[in-house]
């Protein structure tokens, strides 16, 4: 499924003294199969944007609403996820949500059921078009728990609240991907985890990307993570999209990114520092390529 947004705007508390424009005429396309990164500060509009993707925030549809807010209706707003037209209020949003999984920040805080099994099954039961059989549910939950790296038989009867932090997060992710969504959106999936936990989550995302979820979108502050994993990156700032580029090209704009107050990957920082010594190192900003290019530059060759 392809995500296509054109001229998308959104204002919180429109018409009140607290009104704030979160998205200003954003156009962005995410192709099927991408591992897409979204970066930007808190309040840059990135969360507002991703919440549109499974209709947690709606594109205002009725003209009346616009007149009330004394605004012209954006006749040209387009928001499509696959065949779902999100500007049409007759769209089956429930079906959309089963296809677009959304993992919020600190998803472990949304766990609620008595057992891990029930919590993971929650989404599956909600989205099933007809009442699923016990067997179907069990299979789905087993698959979901297995792919996030947990032992189904070991954890199914446990209370999700008795698990460790990293395990809780994986259960929460299992609860989202249990419907095998084609698009998976994650807001800061590794926030608050220690380095090892982070690594595990990134491995899990690649596992999902190569199996269930054709498209993965991550919102992240960790530029090393972005440079290492993403096919393309969108930079949000002040409700607008400043860049949409592959990391390889994006981080050649390191100075601009830093001036926006954003971070850049370590490799880009080193490249920037090297410029002072008259060395223009070309690499795609992954650690692997950085090492390769640096060693090549020094004529050391590369050990394959």
């Amino acid at each position: 499924m392809r995500i296509q947004a054109e001229h998308l705007s959104y204002t919180y508390n429109a018409g009140s003294p607290f009104a704030s424009a979160a998205l200003k005429d954003v156009s962005l396309t995410v192709e099927e199969g991408e591992f897409f990164g979204i970066i930007g500060h808190t309040g840059s509009g990135k969360s507002t944007f991703v919440q549109h993707l499974n209709a947690l925030l709606r594109v205002p549809t009725s003209l009346r609403k616009y007149r009330k807010k004394r605004k012209d209706p954006p006749s040209n707003t387009v928001l499509k996820v696959g065949d779902f037209d999100l500007t049409n209020k007759k769209t089956d949003f429930n079906a959309l949500r089963s296809k677009v999984g959304m993992v919020m920040q600190y998803p472990e805080y949304q766990l609620f059921a008595e057992t891990v099994f029930d919590d993971v099954a929650f989404g599956y039961k909600n989205f099933a078009p007809e009442k699923p059989t016990k067997e179907q549910i069990e299979n789905a939950v087993r698959d979901a728990l297995t792919i996030v790296g947990l032992d189904f038989d070991e954890v199914k009867e446990m209370s999700p609240f008795d698990l460790s932090g990293g395990q809780k997060r994986r259960v929460a992710i299992a609860g989202v991907i249990v419907t095998k969504p084609e698009i998976l959106v994650l807001d800061e999936p590794a926030a608050g985890l220690d380095p090892l936990g982070k690594q595990e989550i990134m491995e899990l995302l690649h596992r999902l990307h190569s199996s269930w979820c054709r498209t993965v979108i991550i919102v992240s502050h960790d530029m090393d993570e972005i440079a290492e994993n993403c096919t393309r990156v969108a930079v949000f700032s002040d409700g607008e999209v400043k860049y949409v580029l592959p990391p390889k090209e994006l981080f050649t704009h390191s100075e601009e990114l830093l001036s926006l107050g954003l971070d850049v990957p370590l490799t880009a920082k080193i490249c920037l520092a090297l410029k002072k010594y008259g060395i223009d190192l070309k690499c795609d900003f992954t650690t692997e390529d950085f090492l390769k290019q640096t060693l090549a530059l020094a004529g050391k060759g590369v050990k394959e």
Binding site: L56, N94, M102, M104, P107, F122, K125, G175, V176, T179
Partner: peptide, 8 residues
């Protein structure tokens, strides 16, 4: 929102 995204 999180539960809505899970079909609640």
């Amino acid at each position: 929102n999180a539960q809505k995204a899970r079909g609640a």
